[in-house]
Protein backbone atom coordinates (compact mmCIF):
# COMPACT_ATOMS: atom_id res chain seq x y z
CA UNK A 1 0.00 0.00 0.00
CA UNK A 2 2.73 2.45 0.96
CA UNK A 3 6.16 3.02 -0.43
CA UNK A 4 8.50 0.41 1.06
CA UNK A 5 10.98 2.14 3.38
CA UNK A 6 14.49 0.69 3.52
CA UNK A 7 15.99 -0.66 6.75
CA UNK A 8 12.76 -1.40 8.62
CA UNK A 9 13.73 -5.04 9.11
CA UNK A 10 17.40 -5.20 8.22
CA UNK A 11 20.17 -2.99 9.56
CA UNK A 12 21.88 -0.35 7.50
CA UNK A 13 25.48 -1.58 7.23
CA UNK A 14 27.25 1.71 7.94
CA UNK A 15 25.15 2.66 10.97
CA UNK A 16 24.49 -0.85 12.28
CA UNK A 17 20.90 0.14 13.04
CA UNK A 18 17.41 -0.47 11.76
CA UNK A 19 15.10 2.56 11.68
CA UNK A 20 12.86 1.55 14.58
CA UNK A 21 15.74 1.10 16.98
CA UNK A 22 17.22 4.51 16.18
CA UNK A 23 13.79 6.13 16.35
CA UNK A 24 13.13 4.56 19.73
CA UNK A 25 16.47 5.69 21.14
CA UNK A 26 15.81 9.23 19.92
CA UNK A 27 12.44 9.10 21.62
CA UNK A 28 14.07 7.80 24.79
CA UNK A 29 16.56 10.67 24.69
CA UNK A 30 13.64 13.08 24.70
CA UNK A 31 12.07 11.06 27.52
CA UNK A 32 15.27 11.42 29.51
CA UNK A 33 14.90 15.19 29.15
CA UNK A 34 11.19 15.01 30.10
CA UNK A 35 11.66 12.96 33.26
CA UNK A 36 14.98 14.73 33.81
CA UNK A 37 13.19 18.09 33.90
CA UNK A 38 10.66 16.80 36.41
CA UNK A 39 13.40 15.22 38.48
CA UNK A 40 15.41 18.48 38.38
CA UNK A 41 12.28 20.35 39.48
CA UNK A 42 11.92 17.95 42.38
CA UNK A 43 15.51 18.59 43.45
CA UNK A 44 15.07 22.37 43.10
CA UNK A 45 11.84 22.39 45.11
CA UNK A 46 13.28 20.14 47.77
CA UNK A 47 16.52 22.10 48.04
CA UNK A 48 14.48 25.30 48.32
CA UNK A 49 12.08 23.95 50.96
CA UNK A 50 12.33 25.21 54.52
CA UNK A 51 14.14 22.98 56.97
CA UNK A 52 12.00 20.11 58.23
CA UNK A 53 8.92 20.88 56.15
CA UNK A 54 9.46 18.25 53.44
CA UNK A 55 7.02 15.37 54.00
CA UNK A 56 8.39 11.85 54.17
CA UNK A 57 7.25 8.51 55.47
CA UNK A 58 3.71 9.07 54.21
CA UNK A 59 3.88 6.46 51.46
CA UNK A 60 3.48 2.73 51.92
CA UNK A 61 7.02 1.41 51.57
CA UNK A 62 6.30 -2.34 51.49
CA UNK A 63 3.71 -1.79 48.77
CA UNK A 64 6.10 0.45 46.83
CA UNK A 65 8.87 -2.13 47.13
CA UNK A 66 6.51 -4.87 45.98
CA UNK A 67 5.55 -2.77 42.97
CA UNK A 68 9.24 -2.33 42.19
CA UNK A 69 9.64 -6.10 42.14
CA UNK A 70 6.58 -6.42 39.88
CA UNK A 71 8.08 -3.98 37.38
CA UNK A 72 11.51 -5.64 37.47
CA UNK A 73 9.88 -8.99 36.81
CA UNK A 74 8.07 -7.55 33.81
CA UNK A 75 11.36 -6.23 32.47
CA UNK A 76 12.84 -9.71 32.69
CA UNK A 77 9.87 -11.29 30.90
CA UNK A 78 10.11 -8.68 28.14
CA UNK A 79 13.79 -9.48 27.67
CA UNK A 80 13.07 -13.22 27.71
CA UNK A 81 10.25 -12.86 25.20
CA UNK A 82 12.69 -11.22 22.82
CA UNK A 83 15.11 -14.12 23.28
CA UNK A 84 12.23 -16.49 22.51
CA UNK A 85 11.54 -14.65 19.26
CA UNK A 86 15.22 -14.78 18.34
CA UNK A 87 14.96 -18.54 18.83
CA UNK A 88 11.84 -18.49 16.60
CA UNK A 89 9.70 -19.79 19.47
CA UNK A 90 6.50 -17.79 19.16
CA UNK A 91 4.58 -19.73 21.80
CA UNK A 92 7.28 -19.12 24.39
CA UNK A 93 7.29 -15.43 23.47
CA UNK A 94 3.53 -15.28 23.97
CA UNK A 95 3.74 -16.88 27.41
CA UNK A 96 6.36 -14.38 28.54
CA UNK A 97 4.33 -11.46 27.22
CA UNK A 98 1.24 -12.66 29.10
CA UNK A 99 3.29 -12.37 32.28
CA UNK A 100 4.45 -8.91 31.21
CA UNK A 101 0.89 -7.72 30.69
CA UNK A 102 -0.19 -9.26 33.98
CA UNK A 103 2.64 -7.41 35.73
CA UNK A 104 1.65 -4.15 34.06
CA UNK A 105 -1.94 -4.60 35.21
CA UNK A 106 -0.81 -5.48 38.73
CA UNK A 107 1.46 -2.44 38.88
CA UNK A 108 -1.27 -0.06 37.75
CA UNK A 109 -3.86 -1.65 40.04
CA UNK A 110 -1.60 -1.34 43.06
CA UNK A 111 -0.73 2.23 42.11
CA UNK A 112 -4.42 3.12 41.83
CA UNK A 113 -5.04 1.64 45.27
CA UNK A 114 -2.13 3.64 46.69
CA UNK A 115 -3.54 6.81 45.16
CA UNK A 116 -6.98 6.27 46.63
CA UNK A 117 -5.43 5.69 50.07
CA UNK A 118 -3.81 9.13 49.85
CA UNK A 119 -7.00 10.85 48.76
CA UNK A 120 -8.65 10.04 52.09
CA UNK A 121 -5.66 10.75 54.33
CA UNK A 122 -5.67 14.31 55.69
CA UNK A 123 -3.50 16.95 57.19
CA UNK A 124 -5.17 19.73 59.18
CA UNK A 125 -3.26 22.91 59.95
CA UNK A 126 -4.42 24.51 63.20
CA UNK A 127 -5.12 28.17 63.84
CA UNK A 128 -3.86 27.81 67.43
CA UNK A 129 -1.32 25.10 68.21
CA UNK A 130 -2.25 22.27 70.57
CA UNK A 131 -0.11 21.25 73.50
CA UNK A 132 1.02 17.66 73.76
CA UNK A 133 0.55 17.72 77.51
CA UNK A 134 -3.19 18.18 77.01
CA UNK A 135 -3.35 15.80 74.05
CA UNK A 136 -1.23 12.70 74.63
CA UNK A 137 -2.55 11.19 71.40
CA UNK A 138 -0.49 13.82 69.57
CA UNK A 139 2.80 12.76 71.18
CA UNK A 140 4.07 11.51 67.84
CA UNK A 141 3.29 14.87 66.25
CA UNK A 142 5.61 16.99 68.35
CA UNK A 143 9.03 17.67 66.92
CA UNK A 144 11.80 16.66 69.28
CA UNK A 145 12.17 19.17 72.09
CA UNK A 146 8.87 20.93 71.37
CA UNK A 147 5.48 20.49 72.96
CA UNK A 148 3.29 22.41 70.53
CA UNK A 149 1.65 20.79 67.53
CA UNK A 150 0.80 23.00 64.56
CA UNK A 151 -0.83 20.46 62.33
CA UNK A 152 -2.44 17.06 62.73
CA UNK A 153 -2.20 14.31 60.18
CA UNK A 154 -4.56 11.34 60.10
CA UNK A 155 -7.90 9.99 58.98
CA UNK A 156 -11.00 12.13 59.37
CA UNK A 157 -14.13 10.30 60.40
CA UNK A 158 -16.75 10.27 57.65
CA UNK A 159 -14.61 12.31 55.27
CA UNK A 160 -14.81 11.70 51.57
CA UNK A 161 -11.97 12.31 49.16
CA UNK A 162 -10.34 15.63 48.57
CA UNK A 163 -12.14 17.70 51.19
CA UNK A 164 -10.85 21.19 51.80
CA UNK A 165 -11.65 23.90 54.34
CA UNK A 166 -13.95 25.47 51.75
CA UNK A 167 -15.96 22.31 51.30
CA UNK A 168 -16.36 21.99 55.09
CA UNK A 169 -17.63 25.55 55.33
CA UNK A 170 -19.93 25.13 52.37
CA UNK A 171 -21.56 22.04 53.89
CA UNK A 172 -21.95 23.82 57.26
CA UNK A 173 -19.90 21.32 59.23
CA UNK A 174 -18.92 22.64 62.69
CA UNK A 175 -16.20 20.23 63.65
CA UNK A 176 -14.28 17.21 62.46
CA UNK A 177 -13.06 14.10 64.23
CA UNK A 178 -9.58 13.06 63.23
CA UNK A 179 -7.67 9.91 64.17
CA UNK A 180 -4.07 11.10 64.29
CA UNK A 181 -1.32 9.01 62.75
CA UNK A 182 1.36 7.66 65.03
CA UNK A 183 3.87 10.21 63.75
CA UNK A 184 3.90 13.53 61.98
CA UNK A 185 6.32 13.88 59.09
CA UNK A 186 8.02 16.79 60.78
CA UNK A 187 9.43 14.26 63.19
CA UNK A 188 12.47 12.94 61.32
CA UNK A 189 12.76 9.31 60.20
CA UNK A 190 15.59 8.59 62.62
CA UNK A 191 13.72 10.16 65.49
CA UNK A 192 10.59 8.16 64.59
CA UNK A 193 12.63 4.98 64.75
CA UNK A 194 13.95 5.84 68.19
CA UNK A 195 10.53 6.72 69.56
CA UNK A 196 8.97 3.54 68.09
CA UNK A 197 11.54 1.44 69.90
CA UNK A 198 10.96 3.29 73.13
CA UNK A 199 7.21 2.89 72.80
CA UNK A 200 7.51 -0.83 72.12
CA UNK A 201 9.66 -1.25 75.18
CA UNK A 202 7.17 0.73 77.23
CA UNK A 203 4.27 -1.34 75.91
CA UNK A 204 5.93 -4.59 76.94
CA UNK A 205 5.99 -3.48 80.54
CA UNK A 206 2.54 -1.88 80.44
CA UNK A 207 -0.77 -3.69 80.20
CA UNK A 208 -2.52 -3.88 76.85
CA UNK A 209 -5.46 -1.84 78.13
CA UNK A 210 -3.71 1.49 77.59
CA UNK A 211 -2.97 0.71 74.01
CA UNK A 212 -6.06 2.22 72.36
CA UNK A 213 -5.16 5.62 73.71
CA UNK A 214 -2.76 6.59 70.95
CA UNK A 215 -5.36 6.23 68.24
CA UNK A 216 -8.39 7.83 69.82
CA UNK A 217 -10.10 10.55 67.84
CA UNK A 218 -9.44 14.22 68.29
CA UNK A 219 -12.20 16.76 67.75
CA UNK A 220 -11.26 19.97 65.98
CA UNK A 221 -13.77 22.76 65.46
CA UNK A 222 -13.80 24.08 61.89
CA UNK A 223 -13.15 27.60 63.20
CA UNK A 224 -9.81 26.31 64.49
CA UNK A 225 -8.74 25.02 61.07
CA UNK A 226 -6.38 27.23 59.14
CA UNK A 227 -6.07 24.91 56.16
CA UNK A 228 -6.94 21.35 55.38
CA UNK A 229 -5.86 19.07 52.60
CA UNK A 230 -5.89 15.41 51.77
CA UNK A 231 -2.56 13.99 50.63
CA UNK A 232 -3.22 15.23 47.08
CA UNK A 233 -1.14 17.50 44.80
CA UNK A 234 -2.49 20.55 46.60
CA UNK A 235 -1.12 19.28 49.93
CA UNK A 236 2.49 20.24 49.30
CA UNK A 237 5.06 20.46 46.57
CA UNK A 238 6.17 16.99 47.68
CA UNK A 239 2.82 15.42 46.85
CA UNK A 240 2.52 17.58 43.75
CA UNK A 241 5.81 16.09 42.56
CA UNK A 242 4.84 12.61 43.68
CA UNK A 243 1.55 12.58 41.79
CA UNK A 244 2.97 14.26 38.70
CA UNK A 245 5.96 11.94 38.42
CA UNK A 246 4.18 8.70 39.27
CA UNK A 247 1.13 9.73 37.23
CA UNK A 248 3.24 10.38 34.17
CA UNK A 249 5.15 7.17 34.82
CA UNK A 250 1.88 5.28 35.16
CA UNK A 251 0.75 6.64 31.80
CA UNK A 252 3.99 5.31 30.32
CA UNK A 253 3.34 1.88 31.82
CA UNK A 254 -0.14 1.96 30.35
CA UNK A 255 1.17 3.07 26.96
CA UNK A 256 3.83 0.37 26.91
CA UNK A 257 1.30 -2.30 27.90
CA UNK A 258 -1.06 -1.19 25.13
CA UNK A 259 1.78 -1.32 22.62
CA UNK A 260 2.77 -4.84 23.73
CA UNK A 261 -0.85 -5.99 23.61
CA UNK A 262 -1.22 -4.54 20.13
CA UNK A 263 1.88 -6.33 18.90
CA UNK A 264 0.76 -9.54 20.61
CA UNK A 265 -2.75 -9.71 19.10
CA UNK A 266 -3.67 -7.55 16.07
CA UNK A 267 -0.01 -7.15 15.08
CA UNK A 268 0.82 -10.87 15.20
CA UNK A 269 0.14 -11.26 11.47
CA UNK A 270 3.50 -9.62 10.86
CA UNK A 271 5.28 -12.59 12.46
CA UNK A 272 4.29 -14.75 9.51
CA UNK A 273 5.05 -12.24 6.79
CA UNK A 274 8.18 -10.55 8.17
CA UNK A 275 9.47 -12.18 11.38
CA UNK A 276 12.54 -9.97 11.56
CA UNK A 277 10.49 -6.80 11.52
CA UNK A 278 8.19 -8.32 14.15
CA UNK A 279 11.17 -9.11 16.39
CA UNK A 280 12.42 -5.57 15.85
CA UNK A 281 9.07 -4.16 16.95
CA UNK A 282 9.24 -6.22 20.14
CA UNK A 283 12.84 -5.13 20.74
CA UNK A 284 12.08 -1.42 20.21
CA UNK A 285 8.99 -1.53 22.43
CA UNK A 286 11.08 -3.49 24.90
CA UNK A 287 13.61 -0.65 24.99
CA UNK A 288 10.76 1.65 25.95
CA UNK A 289 9.61 -0.77 28.63
CA UNK A 290 13.07 -1.08 30.16
CA UNK A 291 13.34 2.69 30.19
CA UNK A 292 10.06 2.94 32.09
CA UNK A 293 11.44 0.38 34.53
CA UNK A 294 14.64 2.40 34.81
CA UNK A 295 12.70 5.56 35.66
CA UNK A 296 10.90 3.69 38.43
CA UNK A 297 14.21 2.43 39.80
CA UNK A 298 14.98 6.09 40.57
CA UNK A 299 11.46 7.17 41.51
CA UNK A 300 11.03 4.53 44.19
CA UNK A 301 13.91 5.54 46.49
CA UNK A 302 13.56 9.25 45.70
CA UNK A 303 9.84 9.51 46.45
CA UNK A 304 9.30 6.72 48.98
CA UNK A 305 12.49 6.59 50.98
CA UNK A 306 14.32 9.90 50.99
Amino acid sequence: MDIPIPYTSTVRPDTGLYNGKLGMWLFLASEIMLFGALFSSYVLLRAGADEGTWPHGLLNIPIGAFNTLVLITSSLTVAMSWVALKASNFQRYRRFQFVTLACAAAFLGIKAWEYSEKFSHYEVWLATPLDVAAHPELAGHAVDGQTEVYSVIGHIEGAGRGWTLNSLQESNIDSIQIHPDQFHYRVGAREQGKRSKAEKAAQKSKSAADHGDAHSALTIPVSEIKRMSALVPAHSTYFATYFTLTGLHGLHVLGGAIAFAWILWPGAKLWNSDPERYTNAVEATGLFWHFVDLVWIFLFPVLYLL
Binding site: L34, A234, T244
Partner: peptide, 19 residues
Amino acid sequence: PPLEAAAVMQLMDRLAGSS
Protein backbone atom coordinates in the same frame (compact mmCIF):
# COMPACT_ATOMS: atom_id res chain seq x y z
CA PRO B 1 10.54 17.96 26.68
CA PRO B 2 11.48 20.23 29.62
CA LEU B 3 8.79 22.68 28.46
CA GLU B 4 6.38 19.77 28.24
CA ALA B 5 7.25 18.92 31.84
CA ALA B 6 6.83 22.58 32.79
CA ALA B 7 3.45 22.74 31.03
CA VAL B 8 2.27 19.62 32.86
CA MET B 9 3.28 21.18 36.16
CA GLN B 10 1.48 24.45 35.33
CA LEU B 11 -1.58 22.39 34.40
CA MET B 12 -1.35 20.69 37.79
CA ASP B 13 -1.16 24.11 39.44
CA ARG B 14 -4.24 25.30 37.57
CA LEU B 15 -6.34 22.16 37.74
CA ALA B 16 -5.23 20.28 40.86
CA GLY B 17 -4.37 23.29 43.01
CA SER B 18 -0.75 22.31 43.48
CA SER B 19 2.00 24.88 44.06
